[in-house]
């Protein structure tokens, strides 16, 4: 078996989420853990690592935002097309270790997608965890991801959405402000663990606030973004301070990656 080769999977649905986010639903038994990723192959164009946005042994959801050639080609795929995948790769969020805890999910923009894997995981293992807090921030109400699922989440979990600007309709009545504003104003237990994915500035600010709320750096998990090519710890592109983001990450405790002067 050639480790660089991928297998073909059928696309069951292509769902336009927002102006620049598309969800590909794929018939797939790879079943990545929350926080793990697959490498998507579009032969002729190249490969790109995409985080799983689901937790399901028959389906795989990939949320795609166009940032490069591969993601652009992915959004042009249609229902019934096939797509090449290899993986899953990476460590993922340590869901088993976190049993019995309150979970605080903090996501910004398309960084929410990998966190949805955690939500689907907790949906299936709800007895194992205490409360789930979600602090998700988007640019505008139109950019909100997984809109159809929010009322369902609201029934079971504590959901706090925010938008940077109020442009157009605001069906979820999101307050205008940053994720961190919501986080400041709401209580989270000091023995909770926080799982974060989003722009670096969001992660830095979130960390400050959570530390004020009594969480230590070891209770904070972040998912890092790097240039990954081989996804098998060889090509060297994703290495930072000796850690392969593709093998040892992409999830690290804040303690491990703070002050990363490249």
């Amino acid at each position: 078996m050639n480790i660089y080769n991928s297998k073909q999977y059928k696309i069951l649905d292509v769902i336009k989420q927002t102006g620049d986010n598309t969800l590909l639903r794929i018939k797939c038994d790879l079943n990545p853990m929350p926080g793990q990723f697959v490498n998507v192959s579009i032969p002729g164009i190249g490969e790109a690592p995409i985080s799983s946005a689901s937790y399901n042994d028959k389906l795989l959801d990939l949320n795609v935002r166009i940032v490069g050639n591969v993601t652009k080609a992915m959004t042009q795929l249609k229902k019934g097309d096939e797509i090449g995948l290899r993986g899953p790769y990476g460590n993922g969020f340590p869901m088993k270790e976190l049993k019995g805890k309150d979970l605080v999910l903090v996501g910004g923009g398309c960084g929410v997608a990998p966190l949805r894997g955690i939500i689907e995981y907790v949906d299936l293992h709800w007895k194992d965890y205490k409360d789930v807090y979600m602090f998700f921030g988007y640019r505008t109400p139109g950019d909100i991801l997984f809109k159809d699922e929010i009322s369902g989440w609201n029934d079971k979990y504590k959901v706090f959405l925010s938008v940077d600007q109020e442009v157009g309709a605001n069906p979820f009545n999101c307050p205008v402000g940053f994720v961190t504003d919501n986080l400041k104003e709401n209580k989270v237990p000091s023995n909770a663990v926080a799982l974060m994915c989003g722009p670096p500035i969001m992660m830095t600010k979130t960390t400050e606030i959570l530390k004020e709320k009594g969480l230590t750096e070891k209770q904070l998990y972040v998912s890092l973004e790097r240039h990954m090519k081989c996804c098998t710890g060889k090509c060297g592109h994703c290495m930072v301070h000796g850690q392969y983001v593709c093998l040892d990450g992409p999830v690290f405790t804040y303690d491990e990656v703070k002050n990363l002067d490249e």
């Binding site: 660089y4 032969p43 002729g44 164009i45 190249g46 490969e47 090519k229 081989c230 060889k234 090509c235 060297g236 592109h237």
Partner: peptide, 15 residues
């Protein structure tokens, strides 16, 4: 040292 890049090179006509 063998860090590497992976990239595709195809003929657009024949794919």
């Amino acid at each position: 040292c063998f860090c590497f890049d992976l990239h595709d090179d195809v003929n657009p006509a024949t794919k």
